[in-house]
C-alpha cells in the first residue's frame, strides 16, 4: 500500500523543527509500524537523506523505549499496544499518517522523534524503591502477602515507563506513571515502612520537573499500553492525604 507520512524533523534540541511529508510506496500490510519506519529510513538513506531518528529496542512491547504520537494518539490507534506492536493493518492505502514526538515540557526533544524521558528517572530516584541492602532481606516466605494484593501490585508494576500517559494527557501530567509505582509499593507489606515519605518525595519531585496537574480526564488510562488504571492515581491521592495528615492508612 501507499501512504503519506508527515513526520516531525528536528536536527537537535536547539534547532527549529518542522513537519516533512514523505510519500511512501510499497508498504506491506504485514509490517509493524516500526518496520515501516525502518523501510522509510532505508529509502531515505539510499536517497542520501538523513534517516528519521526514533527510539525502539525490544520490539515486543516490554522495554518501553518506543514512543511516537501517531495520528493524534500515543502509540497509535490500537488499544493497549505499544508502537512497536502496532501493525500496518491498522492503516489503509492512501492514508495520511502524522507522526509526532511526545510533547511535554518535562520531556525535552533530543532529535526528530526522540525525547528525553529522564525526568521519569528523577522521580523514581526520589523514592521509587524499598531501602533494602543486598543481603539484608528476610526469607522470602516469611511475609505472606494476600494474593489479591500481590496481583494488584503486579498490575501496577507492569508499567514500562514509556511516557504515553504524559504524552496523551492534555495537561501533560505524570500522575499515572508515579501512582503506578507508589501503588505497587503501597500494596506490599515491604513498602509500608517508607510509604509516607515515598509518596511525598515522589510527588514533590514530579511537580518540580514541570509536569502538569491531573484533572481526572482518564486519557492516560485509555492510552496506557499496559492497561494501568487511574484507580492507582486515587490510591496515590489517598496515600498522599494520609501522609500529609499523619493519619493511619485507610484501605479501600
Amino acid at each position: 500500500m501507499n501512504i503519506k507520512l508527515e513526520i516531525w524533523r528536528q536536527k537537535d534540541a536547539k534547532s527549529k523543527g518542522g513537519f516533512v511529508t514523505y510519500p511512501l510506496d510499497g508498504v506491506s500490510e504485514g509490517m509493524s509500524f516500526l518496520e515501516m519506519m525502518d523501510f522509510l529510513n532505508t529509502t531515505l538513506i539510499k536517497k542520501g537523506d538523513e534517516p528519521v531518528a526514533f527510539e525502539h529496542d525490544c520490539r515486543e512491547g516490554i522495554c518501553g523505549s518506543c514512543s511516537l504520537y501517531i495520528n493524534g494518539r500515543a502509540h497509535g490507534p490500537a488499544h493497549e499496544t505499544t508502537t512497536c506492536e502496532l501493525r500496518m493493518t491498522k492503516f489503509r492505502n492512501g492514508d495520511r499518517i502524522v507522526v509526532e514526538p511526545w510533547r511535554s515540557k518535562a520531556f525535552p526533544l533530543i532529535k526528530d522523534l526522540i525525547v528525553d524521558r529522564s525526568s521519569f528517572e528523577k522521580i523514581m530516584q526520589a523514592g521509587g524503591f524499598i531501602s533494602v541492602n543486598t543481603g539484608a532481606a528476610p526469607e522470602a516466605n516469611s511475609i505472606p502477602i494476600p494474593k489479591n494484593h500481590a496481583d494488584e501490585a503486579f498490575d501496577s508494576a507492569v508499567c514500562v515507563g514509556c511516557g504515553a500517559c504524559v504524552a496523551t494527557c492534555k495537561n501533560s501530567s505524570a500522575m499515572l506513571f508515579v501512582s503506578a509505582k507508589i501503588s505497587q509499593l503501597a500494596l506490599l507489606p515491604q513498602g509500608q515502612v517508607e510509604a509516607k515519605t515515598r509518596v511525598q518525595n515522589m510527588v514533590t519531585k514530579m511537580d518540580d520537573l514541570g509536569f502538569g496537574n491531573c484533572t481526572n480526564t482518564g486519557a492516560c488510562e485509555a492510552e496506557c499500553p499496559k492497561g494501568i488504571k487511574i484507580a492507582n492515581i486515587a490510591r496515590m491521592n489517598r496515600e498522599f492525604i494520609c501522609a500529609k495528615m499523619g493519619a493511619q492508612k485507610m484501605s479501600l
Binding site: Y69, R73, R103, K105, A106, G210, A219
Partner: peptide, 12 residues
Amino acid sequence: ARPVRYKMEGWS
C-alpha cells in the same frame, strides 16, 4: 507543561 502543542490533537 506542554509548550509545543501537537499538530494532531488526540481525542481518546
